[in-house]
Design a protein around this nucleic acid. Structure first.
Lengths: 337, 337
DNA sequence: GAAGAAGATACAAACGTTTGCATTACGTTA
DNA sequence: TAACGTAATGCAAACGTTTGTATCTTCTTC
């Protein structure tokens, strides 16, 4: 027997006002602990509110204050622990300012991204954090008129929080070269503004060791875990097979390792693999993954701090985040000369 | 919370009405493609709205209609791909009803869970999907008065969507027994209503094979990946070491495998491991993980369908989800007798 | 004990939509 | 051409808060 239970009228501030024999405005003030209301009245009202099961109506409040105390977070992929870490940092920091965080994910689809953003705009969120979007600059230009936005990992956009995309990649490729690797493959992700520095770091590192960069050693990964199989196939089909692979990210590295293993190659004995991001499971992989530690949690925190400055039109300079560092675990072998 | 620059006045329906020399009510109707407005007027209004950059104000709309077209999703842990899959199913199905999904995660903390729920209640969401909460029945009793709620994986609560928690576990333990394992450890998670059926399945399976259940073989895992180390230590300290482990979930299995490997034990040669959930990376682990496939995506879809029925007071019987099945990959070895 | 200062509370307008009902405009039929 | 039906639009109230200002108490102070 289904109840019509939740259709029953919600208790409003007016109901409390009536019960307390007082004006609605007094109730509002009492509920926000205003010093303007006498202690006795205040307590009586708060007790009544509790007893009557009062739940504030955000819509009404937002309508009049045009503030929602909500931060919108737009993520391309909840599946990737990388972004979960970001969300943690954001929530942690947001709660300090008593802001709540609502998340929408877009599966990396641009249309979904715009829908999410438009939706948050309708909701009148107090701020928007957008991680690694695909959308273009002009789009955000118009958006920024209505809501403060901070981008994570989009160095090319006006208000961003990011960290040195070149340094970490450069370091790990340098390391592979130092331990003797000469044929190093690079697996890049789906095209996007984030790809270039990684590729440059790769080319530069080779360059610094006097190695000519070989376009055949660069692969493009579509982001689906299954696609690593194709990459491995192509990689193994090369005449001079690489001895090391720098993967797009840790999840990609995981897939590569798996399919290499299926093809009979052991990591790192037969081929070395490096990842990027340092997600939680990286150290639990077999072998534990050498990777670039990307400080996603800190980026989350900083993005909220930045947003907070933006909201009050402070000079809000982009925060500085420490450079990413390399975590060497077991997935890169030293080559005998 | 100082007001600021980008806070320039938003375009409202009245502005459009003025520009189109028409009444606000006509604008509303035009924007929802009502047949009550002449085609010419309708097009003119819609064009104007686009040109002027009109963004509807959800707060105002929600206030009058007392519907928000939002579904709230409360998750204990975004890091776990398991829940990401649920979110996918929910979003997919929700978009069919043109509902949007907003997510909050609670890190498994009960206080955070209540905050999230309370928040969604204030937001006047049209429905709430709560996954594997810790909270108690009475709490939800009062909640259901204000919003329809569907629980995922909480068989004990009134409106839930779940699937046979016993069958899958039973099957995989049976399988381990069939291939010759006699000393099988069970790793359970943090206490909660979800634990019992798994444990019962484990005990029953042993029973059916005439094996007495050994309390020393049951370990409690706290949910943190690092904690697997302790579990492995305790496990290896046992006098008669188990030959197989049924882990709480796949992530737990991953950690166990890693620490077993650090202690020099190979999976599955030295010890077998089974997981639960079948998250995306399970098949990419080394060895690929044998596990119970839990249909999280389908559960997500069903929870929205259920919610939809609840909302219109249909007889809404709990939907039936196919039983979970076992995915045998490489992490369980056959024992020589 | 009266004037004035706080202190406490009430009043009323506003926020931006939606929607039932009233009104006007237009084309059709007798 | 008057009467009528229908199509298109306008009017106004309502949703539940918040907040600036006005009003009413109560206490000081002389």
């Amino acid at each position: 027997m289904a109840e019509t239970g939740w259709k029953r009228r919600r208790v409003t501030i007016k109901d409390i006002a009536a019960a307390a024999e007082v004006d609605p405005s007094t109730v509002t003030r009492a509920l926000q602990n205003s010093p303007r209301v006498r202690t006795a009245t205040l307590e009586k009202i708060q007790r009544l509110a509790r007893e009557m099961g009062y739940v504030p109506n955000m819509a009404a409040r937002t309508l009049v204050t045009s503030r929602s105390s909500i931060i919108g977070l737009v993520l391309p992929d909840m599946t990737n622990p990388f972004f979960a870490e970001l969300a943690r940092g954001i929530e942690e920091e947001a709660s300090k300012h008593s802001l709540r965080v609502l998340t929408r994910n877009t599966d990396g689809v641009e249309a979904a991204e715009r829908d999410a953003i438009g939706f948050f705009a309708e909701l009148k969120v107090d701020g928007l954090v957008i991680a690694m979007s695909r959308s273009t600059t002009e789009y955000f230009k118009t958006l920024e008129a209505s809501v403060p936005v901070v981008h994570v990992n989009r160095d090319d956009l006006p208000h961003h929080v990011s960290c040195d995309r070149y340094a970490g990649s450069r370091q790990i490729v340098d390391h592979m070269l130092q331990v003797g690797h000469r044929r190093i493959a690079l697996v890049t992700g789906p095209a996007g503004p984030a790809q270039q520095p990684k590729r440059t770091a790769y080319v530069d590192a080779l360059d610094a060791h006097g190695i000519e960069y070989n376009p055949n050693y660069i692969f493009t990964f579509n982001g689906e875990l299954q696609d690593t199989r194709r990459v491995v196939d192509e990689l193994l089909a090369l005449e001079h097979r690489p001895t090391a692979v720098f993967a797009w990210n840790d999840l990609c590295a995981l897939g590569l390792i798996r399919h290499l293993s299926l093809r009979g190659l052991r990591v790192p004995d037969d081929i070395s693999v490096a990842g990027h991001d340092d997600i939680a499971i990286a150290r639990f992989m077999d072998p534990p993954l050498s990777t670039v530690h990307w400080p996603m949690y800190e980026l989350g925190q900083e993005s909220i701090r930045y947003l907070y400055q933006l909201r009050q039109n402070l000079p809000a300079q982009a925060p500085t985040i420490p450079s990413p560092t390399v975590r060497l675990r077991g997935s890169i072998s030293t080559l005998d000369p």
